[in-house]
Amino acid sequence: MYQKVIQRRYQVAKAGTRISVLETGDVWTCTSFAGVNKQGIGFLAHFDGGISTGVIDEIIEELKKLDADFSTFELRIATGLAGYVNPANWPTRIGIWWHVRKSGLFKTDRWWKRHWTEIWSLRFWWVFGVVVDTNTRTIKRSTFYHHTERKGEWVPRPPKGVNCWYTRWKAYRVGVKTVKRKKK
C-alpha cells in the first residue's frame, strides 16, 4: 500500500509492511528529499523552505528505530528547473546538506561528488511527483505535467462569503470555511 506525502511533511516506510510505497506530488519550486537502502527502508520528505529541513533530525531518529543501515542509503534531492534557479530555494538545499553532514551517518563523500541537486523537470513550468518504492528499492519521478494543470479534486474557485477576493482565495487554499459578515 502507498502513502501520500503532502507538502511540508515526511514519511518513513519499510518493505513488507502496511506502508511500503511513498509518493509526493506538485514538486515545482519545492524540493523533495528521498532515500532508500538495501534493507528496504526508505523515506520521502517534501520541503517548501529552508526552515522545514529541521525535520531531517526526526527522520534520522525514526530510521534509527528501524535499525536502518545508513551506509547503503541511496539519497536523492530533486527539484524542478523553477526551484533550481530560484534563490529562495537555495537555503532548502543547503539545509538538507547541513543536516545530512551533521548526522555523520550517511556515506556522503561519494554522494556529494556524484550530484548535488537533480533537476527532474527541465522545463520551467513543469511539475513532477516522486515515488519511493521500498519493495523494489527505487526512487523515481512520476506525474509529469504543466504547473497550471490542476487535479480533479482541486477547483481554482474560492468559496463565496467574504468580500475580499484575496481572503477568500487564501481561506480556500487552507480549507477554512468562511462566513460573510453582515454590514452594520
Results as ranks from 00 to 15, higher is better:
Leu22Gly: 08
Glu23Leu: 10
Gly25Lys: 05
Gly25Ser: 09
Asp26Trp: 11
Asp26His: 11
Asp26Pro: 00
Val27Tyr: 02
Trp28Gly: 00
Ala34Gly: 11
Gly35Thr: 10
Asn37Cys: 15
Gly42Ser: 12
Phe43Asn: 07
Ala45Phe: 12
Phe47Leu: 12
Ile51Ala: 14
Ser52Ile: 08
Gly54Leu: 11
Ile56Gln: 11
Ile59Ser: 08
Leu63Lys: 12
Lys65Cys: 07
Leu66Val: 06
Leu66Asp: 05
Phe73Cys: 11
Arg76Leu: 13
Arg76Ala: 09
Ala78Pro: 03
Thr79Asn: 03
Leu81Pro: 03
Leu81Arg: 14
Tyr84Phe: 15
Tyr84His: 15
Tyr84Trp: 12
Val85Ile: 13
Val85Asn: 08
Asn86Val: 02
Pro87Met: 10
Gly95Glu: 03
His99Ile: 00
Lys102Ser: 08
Lys107His: 14
Asp109Arg: 14
Arg110Ala: 14
Lys113Ala: 07
Arg114Tyr: 10
Arg114Lys: 13
His115Val: 12
His115Met: 10
Thr117Ser: 14
Ile119Gln: 05
Trp120Pro: 00
Leu122Gly: 09
Arg123Phe: 09
Arg123Asn: 09
Trp125Leu: 12
Trp126Lys: 02
Gly129Arg: 03
Val130Glu: 00
Val132Gly: 01
Asp133Val: 02
Thr134Leu: 05
Thr134Arg: 04
Arg137Phe: 07
Arg137Thr: 10
Thr143Val: 05
Phe144Gly: 00
Phe144Cys: 00
His146Thr: 00
Glu149Asn: 02
Arg150Glu: 00
Gly152Gln: 05
Gly152Glu: 06
Gly152Tyr: 07
Glu153Arg: 05
Pro158Val: 01
Pro159Met: 04
Lys160Met: 04
Lys160Tyr: 09
